Structure formats: structure tokens, C-alpha cells
Simulated assay, not measured.
Amino acid sequence: MSVRRLLRRTVPQDDLEEVFREFADRYGLEAVRVEFLEADNWLSVPCVVADRWFLKVISETHALLHGLMTTGRNLGALSSGVPGFFEHLETPYEMAVHELEATRRIREIGVAAPEPVEAFEHLGHGVVVLEYLGGFRPLPALDRGTAEVVAPQVFDSLARMHAAGLAHGDLRGENVLVLDGVPYFIDATSVDPRAVEDARAYDLACALGSLAPHVGARAAVDAALAHYDPADLLRARTFLGFVNLRPDLAFDGSAVRGEIEKVAATAE
């Protein structure tokens, strides 16, 4: 049995059924059709309702795991020579509200993201409701040609977030959903606004690490250069070792680092 299926069991079946009944009541539905997703998501039970809504049900166990992961990420940031900048959200409902509001802010600045619908609490579980993007493909599922087209858009969207004072904090392939050639961003995490510059550099390192396996290190760096200066890439280089330790990001860190250093040397 996969770890994700074990985590799903942290929300008892009876509770899940009650959550779906509550959802049906809130939306005036007599019944709902639910499809559980085998997504690479450790912090909720993700599902699709009626092919229209994307729900995440967040339990106390997910909130505890979020705390452990936040601690680990902050230790990783320290290993890169900067104070930790990831913030822990205490309760399942806080996690749901954060994702809803982060998605709303991303859309407000013109970056593609699912339409946020609502967040609510039921039986102690947090529930976030978003638009379901039917037919999407996560970034790792793209063929090379499509990934090469999408890569510049990823950095354009990321630069828009950063220019607006935002940071994603958990940028990885599974959190970039491509629909009709457009990348949509999901699952932004909470970062300390006092350390947003470090968080942006980490975002950039994550974007490079997510794209390099699909388009090559040079192409990933070139796509980033359309929106970031060599100095930004050098700052992102600081986090490449930390990012490369993530089990959900496997890439040739030495190749990406080498391409950044070539760019920096040319710019001097």
C-alpha cells in the first residue's frame, strides 16, 4: 500500500462521507459523485466532485505532517546559509484558508490558477474547494516539445508573482498543471514575508530543478534569463543543493549550476 493511501486513511471513511454530505448541502445537491486522485500530494486527501470541483480534505494528521515538513525545509534552508523562511500553519482549517487565499492572490495578478471557490471546516477537517481543471497534465507528464514551449511561461508567471511581492514556496512539477498549453499554479505554501527575497531565490531554484530534466539545463537557464538577471540566478544557485535533496525533484544539480556560472561569467 502506498504512503499516500495510508495518509488518506487519516480521514476516516465515515468522516469523508460526512464532508461530502456537507458539501452537497452547501451547494444544493441531492448527491455527489466523488473521484479520489492518486496525486503526489502528502498534505490532504485530494478528490474531484462531479467533474466540476477539486476538493482537498485536510486532517489533523496532515497538519502535523505539514509541521514536520516545515521544520525539515527550514533546516534545509539553514544548510544553504540562510534562516528558515517557511511558516507552519497550525490547523487543518488554516491550511485550507491559506491555499484558498494564495490561489486568489495569484489569480489577481494575472497568473493562471484554478478559480478559488471556498474553504470551510467540518468535523475538525479543513476543506478547500477549487475549480477542477479537467484534462490537465502535470509538468512531469509533458513531452519535451511541449515542455520547451511551457518553460518560458513558467518563469514569466513566477516573475509576476515575485514582482507582486509573492513567493510560491513549493514550486515543483506536480504543482504546475498544464491545460491548453497554459501552466496553472497550485499548492502555494506559507513563507515569512520578512524573508521573501530568500523565498523567491528558492522558488527560482525549484523552477530550474523542475524544468531541467524535461528541457535540459541550458534551456531551463535560458528560459529563466528572459525574466531574471544573472544575479538572480546566482542567488538561486545557493539553494540548488537543498532543492536537489527533495524526493520530488530529481535533476542534475551540477549541470544547472554550471550553466548558471557560465551565464554569470559572461555577464561580468
Rank of each mutant, 00 (worst) to 15 (best):
79 S>N: 01
64 L>P: 01
159 A>R: 15
142 L>V: 08
118 E>S: 09
97 V>S: 09
73 R>D: 05
109 I>A: 09
151 A>I: 03
97 V>R: 14
86 F>G: 05
58 I>E: 07
123 L>K: 15
70 T>Y: 00
160 R>G: 00
133 L>E: 08
87 E>W: 00
170 D>C: 07
139 L>T: 15
75 L>D: 11
154 V>N: 01
101 E>W: 04
69 M>A: 15
77 A>V: 12
132 Y>W: 15
119 A>Q: 07
150 V>Y: 08
143 D>A: 06
81 G>Q: 12
160 R>Q: 01
169 G>M: 06
58 I>G: 07
53 W>H: 14
151 A>N: 02
91 T>P: 01
58 I>V: 11
49 V>F: 00
164 A>H: 08
167 A>D: 12
136 F>K: 12
73 R>T: 06
160 R>Y: 00
51 D>G: 06
70 T>K: 01
59 S>R: 00
113 A>M: 12
86 F>E: 06
166 L>S: 08
146 T>V: 07
167 A>M: 15
56 K>W: 10
78 L>S: 11
174 E>Y: 13
168 H>W: 00
158 L>W: 06
156 D>P: 03
91 T>L: 00
115 E>P: 04
126 G>Q: 09
100 L>N: 05
122 H>G: 02
103 T>W: 09
109 I>K: 09
170 D>Q: 06
165 G>M: 04
62 H>P: 02
143 D>S: 05
61 T>H: 02
92 P>G: 03
162 H>P: 04
93 Y>K: 13
69 M>S: 12
67 G>I: 00
69 M>N: 07
62 H>W: 00
172 R>P: 00
114 P>Y: 10
170 D>A: 13
55 L>P: 10
161 M>W: 02
53 W>N: 03
101 E>H: 10
121 E>G: 05
162 H>G: 04
96 A>K: 09
76 G>T: 08
66 H>Q: 13
159 A>W: 04
83 P>R: 14
112 A>I: 03
102 A>K: 07
140 P>Q: 13
88 H>V: 13
147 A>F: 00
164 A>W: 10
133 L>N: 05
155 F>R: 03
162 H>D: 03
124 G>E: 10
75 L>S: 10
51 D>F: 00
52 R>E: 15
60 E>K: 03
113 A>N: 11
96 A>S: 13
73 R>H: 14
135 G>D: 07
93 Y>R: 14
168 H>D: 02
145 G>W: 14
143 D>V: 04
161 M>Y: 02
137 R>I: 05
136 F>M: 13
87 E>L: 14
101 E>A: 10
133 L>R: 07
151 A>E: 03
58 I>A: 06
139 L>Y: 14
102 A>N: 08
166 L>M: 15
70 T>W: 01
80 S>H: 03
72 G>Y: 13
67 G>E: 01
108 E>N: 14
153 Q>T: 01
171 L>Y: 14
117 V>S: 05
174 E>T: 10
76 G>R: 08
144 R>Y: 10
160 R>M: 03
93 Y>F: 15
111 V>P: 04
